[in-house]
Simulated scan of single mutants.
Amino acid sequence: MSFSKKAVGIILLTSLLTLSFSSCNDNSKAPENTEVTSDADKSSESPEVEKPKAIEPNKPLFTDVFFADPSAHVFNDKLYIYPSHDIDSGIQPNNDGDQYAMEDYHVLSIDDFNSSCVDNGQALHLKDVSWVKRQMWAPDAAYKNNTYYLYFPAKDKKDIFRIGVATSTSPTGPFKPEKNYIQGSFSMDPAVFTDNDNKSYMYFGGLWGGQLEKWKTGKYDSNGAAPQGSEPALGPKVALMNDDMLTFKESPQEVSIVDENGNPILASDEDRRFFEGAWVHKYNDNYYLSYSTGTTHYIVYAMSKNPKGPFTYKGKILNPVKGWTTHHSIVQFKDKWYMFYHDASVSGVDHKRSIMYTELSYNSDGTIKPIN
């Protein structure tokens, strides 16, 4: 090849490269924010993720599964709810509550009320507990000793309600039960309160199906009857717990609930007397014992300067809701106070209940503002 031919080839190649480079630069100078997307590109885009629905006050947390008796606690800035799990047992209702034939426990959790409530699945089942025969009713939970404790009532092999305890390293379980129920325990509705001095107390008891009236002598009497008329009403029981949180440090004693004059609330006073579902919380320097009146379907409360009482009756917190039972808990979460409760508005069946919540507020004297 001659020099002239080589020179022409080099010139042509250089021109082609220059044109190509120029073309790339022109594309890079397209107007800002202009985007061309083909139909194929559009079809490959990820669908928009639906945001979790906020949890509204006084609306069921779930409508497709039934939980009741919510015990709410805050662990590590997260809200956990320990409820009973209602099922359709097919058993006809009676005063012993046989229709409430619950078999297991789930743990619910809430990051905040702008997110959904999560069912973390089964945490403990009847078949896992050797001493239990049936009816795992309203539970509660506590945290101490780097351990989470689940307290639950159930009928033993003799159909006597006892209170058991199971442990876990996680607030959602699974929970491993102790081999036997807590010695000295009886009846139902355990609620554990830990004070500022790190002492923990268990409150428990309930009439009728809860068998509290059958323990008036300190021993189980199958013929034991509830007080009547002008007799003082029965109060819940309280026991100081050992540091292991597995045993009582003392024998349970009755909690006294009195009126403004210091007189015991009477058995006939069904708007104020204790029936079941005791819960204790502390606000400022006051201890609050709240509970269900049962037959009249109120949640009411009494106040004291001592976690063991006596507690002076103060008034109603919650008016009757749909369904026979009323069971609640009160908890502080993210600088506000809330009450969790249940009703039967979704199912229309007393033993298939749904959990809800509502905000709780106090008057300047420490009394609680009623919730309608």
Rank of each mutant, 00 (worst) to 15 (best):
I163H: 03
D156A: 08
E178L: 13
E50K: 15
N58C: 05
G164P: 06
S230M: 15
D197A: 05
G121N: 10
N58H: 05
I330A: 02
S46Q: 09
Y220C: 10
N58F: 02
M241H: 00
E35S: 13
K352Q: 15
S200K: 06
G323V: 03
S268P: 01
C24A: 05
A68F: 01
M339E: 02
N306W: 05
S230Y: 05
V132P: 00
Y298W: 10
V349I: 15
P190Q: 07
T167N: 02
V107Y: 14
M303A: 07
A233I: 02
K336R: 15
K305Y: 02
V192S: 05
N114S: 12
G209V: 08
D343S: 15
D88F: 12
S89K: 09
K78L: 08
R162N: 08
D343A: 02
L79M: 11
L234T: 06
M188E: 03
S168G: 09
F193P: 08
K29N: 09
K352W: 06
L19W: 02
W337A: 09
T296G: 01
V331S: 00
K237H: 08
D77K: 15
V36H: 11
F248M: 10
V36K: 12
S28N: 11
D140F: 11
K219E: 11
S130C: 04
N261C: 03
E213M: 14
N27R: 14
G164A: 05
Y283F: 12
E231T: 04
I87D: 04
S84E: 08
G315F: 13
N319L: 14
E231I: 07
W215C: 06
W215F: 14
A68S: 14
Y291P: 03
W208D: 13
K157N: 12
G262E: 04
H281Q: 09
K314G: 00
A154Q: 11
S170F: 10
L12Y: 08
Q183L: 10
N146E: 12
F193V: 08
E250G: 07
Y298D: 00
V255P: 10
M188Q: 03
F311P: 04
S364E: 12
A40K: 15
E276G: 10
I87A: 03
S15I: 13
A154S: 11
Q122A: 01
P52M: 08
L207A: 01
K352T: 14
W215S: 03
E254A: 13
S115Q: 15
S329N: 07
N306H: 13
E254S: 14
W324S: 06
L19E: 06
M339T: 14
S329I: 01
T169N: 13
S44Q: 14
I257H: 00
A344R: 03
F21I: 14
F3K: 15
D271N: 14
I81M: 11
Y288N: 02
E48Q: 09
A191R: 04
Y203E: 06
L79V: 01
V74M: 08
D112T: 05
A141Y: 11
K158R: 09
W215P: 00
M303P: 01
F340I: 01
